[in-house]
Design a protein around this nucleic acid. Structure first.
Lengths: 214, 214
DNA sequence: GTCTATATAGCGATAGAC
DNA sequence: GTCTATCGCTATATAGAC
């Protein structure tokens, strides 16, 4: 019982093409929205960048806002570091904090993260729904993870921390440093070199430990 | 020898009207650009908000970019705190740092500052000329002022600071905290209440002092 | 010098051919 | 399911009346 009708529809409409184009559209949208912003990216430009027609874009995403939300969501999940708080148990505390700090520093100072933060902030002035989702999916999770880690460190006597939530906040702020702010402002065009990154992270962790060690 | 021609030109063209309208246009531009962003603010809306016609706007500012630059510059100078590092000599160090921290905290978490930072960051993705000017006129000055203060504190033995520039950076980052980030992201719609502001600032200064006191 | 009215261009979103 | 061509709208910037 053969089914010749479903074998390789040579050029006609089918599902496989669909997914490939959808991915191309999403990639183009991510790229343009992050670089040029929401208003600066036209549907024509996105379609052109994706190599499809504008109506193909509209067949996959009902309107510009929907496409923007999908692109941002895809970018967020692509950036999300799932396993940042996993090497906790055995290693000494300073090494754990340094490892987390290095990962966090590299993450937030990457081109993609800087662009994402800029777009989210510019959007927050008018509609903070997406920025809220972004914050809860990203920064807030890191904050909670660090809070738990610091609470355990306090309970085991490795640190003396009365307010773990605020301490976690202060930890990440110290790692961010003025460097991240200058990058967001476009003062430098490339993420910091390996050497200066290492020094910034080590100094920040050192400050944190001096403030919270018993 | 009277000069009747120059006495109160009743309704005709003259300079006084000029300046009042120019100020109205600049105020309207500042307001709209900060709230709705560059692309979100039309020349029509600015003219309407200022109570003048669009061509009057163009007679004062050659194009939209020029008006934007002028509005941002006016807003920057309006926000600049000139006397943040003046009460240094006599008071004890902790009080000086607390006073500076409170001023800085109130400044960066104000509606105007948040809006200005958002606009500057969104602009930095494409053209970082204005953000650079803003950074050098604002944040960089504060950083240098704090650097000097910390260097003096180190020389007089009140603090032990090997790298005053980085320490100044860390001081401001601690004061900023995650609170400023959440406000920029639109997670909260009002600047922090007096009580939580006071607690955040005091905790941050405390962390800084524990890390850098001899 | 200021206003009403308009030229020109680019945007988001859609209709109809294949 | 995809494309070319187009509608309707709004933006920046300008021309002509007063």
């Amino acid at each position: 019982m053969p089914m010749p009708d479903n074998f390789l529809p040579a050029s006609g409409p089918g599902r496989p093409k669909d997914l490939a184009k959808r991915k191309a559209i999403l990639d183009a949208a991510k790229k343009l929205f992050l670089i040029k912003g929401y208003d600066g990216s036209s549907m024509d430009a996105i379609a052109s960048e994706a190599g499809v027609s504008k109506l193909t874009v509209y067949s996959h995403f009902s309107d510009k806002e929907t496409l923007f939300a999908a692109a941002i969501k895809a970018q967020c999940t692509a950036q999300l570091p799932e396993k940042l708080f996993e090497q906790d148990q055995s290693a000494p505390l300073e090494e754990v904090l340094l490892a987390i700090a290095h990962s966090f520093y590299a993450l937030i100072n990457s081109r993609e993260s800087l662009a994402l933060h800029r777009v989210m902030m510019s959007m927050a002035a008018q509609n903070s729904k997406l920025p809220k989702l972004f914050y809860e999916a990203g920064p807030q999770r890191l904050l909670s993870g660090m809070e738990d880690l610091l609470r355990r460190a306090d309970q085991t006597g490795k640190l003396r921390i009365s307010n773990p939530r605020n301490a976690a906040d202060q930890f990440f702020c110290l790692i961010k440093g003025g460097c991240n702010f200058r990058l967001l402002m476009g003062l430098e065009h490339e993420p910091p070199a390996e050497e200066v990154a290492r020094q910034n992270v080590e100094e920040a962790v050192s400050v944190f430990l001096r403030a919270f060690r018993p």
